[in-house]
Design a binder for these strands. Sequence first.
DNA 1: CACATTCGTATCAAAAAAGGTTACGCAATG
DNA 2: CATTGCGTAACCTTTTTTGATACGAATGTG
Lengths: 145, 145
Amino acid sequence: MNSRFSTAVHILTLLAATPDERVTSEFLASSIGTNPVVIRRQLALLREAGLVESKGAKGGGWLLGRKPSAIRLSEIREALGEEAALRMHRNDPHPDCPVGDNVRAALEQVYCDANSAINQRLRRWTLQNMLEEANHLTATQAKKR
Amino acid sequence: MNSRFSTAVHILTLLAATPDERVTSEFLASSIGTNPVVIRRQLALLREAGLVESKGAKGGGWLLGRKPSAIRLSEIREALGEEAALRMHRNDPHPDCPVGDNVRAALEQVYCDANSAINQRLRRWTLQNMLEEANHLTATQAKKR
DNA sequence: CACATTCGTATCAAAAAAGGTTACGCAATG
DNA sequence: CATTGCGTAACCTTTTTTGATACGAATGTG
């Protein structure tokens, strides 16, 4: 699996942290430590799902499409294209292999099962939760000093 | 994510299908369509977990370490090194990023959660199940002809 | 005891996937 | 009408994963 989901959550949490204010992909990119184009590519997918909206030109940038409390992490994952949690091997089995393709078919079921388990868990978390959690951590760190 | 888990299940199902008979890594490799060394690398990990045993020399090869009904897919995943289902992005956030590292920390919790969800699901399936499922599919295909 | 077989493993090469960069068009703002 | 910021394609680089070759050690076999 790749780390796009993580990046997306990071971006969206940033947007959640600055409500009613458009943020440019350039700002987001420098916050996260990557390139604006990388950000835009991902936000494009999230926009299709209605999670964000964008505007070009001066004063343009990105906004959340809904309240942070109404955006679940499962939606983010789905918007990005729902990559499988477990990946099938792509080798062609030997034609004489006694279990051959059927193991693959059986595995498909298992993977489907596992995938829905993940989504179930992610559905429990909203962007609001993430923001609160992050703020909580920040506060705790501040106290320590 | 990589496809090693899939390959491992394939291998082990093959072993389950031919009980009391040592199978060489060369045979396994050609069944699956890869190189014997690739197979051995994985079986080495599975052996550490007690899921298989090996023997060199003539008449050597691999055997399951337990009954297929006593090997859960979750154990296989764990034996291979328990790769995370979701991966953290490795970019260094900008020092001024308001949520910065804390999003990462929050995400860690989520990922831990998601990971245990997967293992819970995989714990429900045994090699015996996989074998039966594969056989069932084979039988169904045979009927159709 | 020489020999064949099969694992064990290191090292290298190849392929695939992911991520980053540049470039340029377009729309909207001011 | 110049500037800003998105939209996207094309391309390059890096990282990850997988496969190949080689050779040593161990264990049966005749």
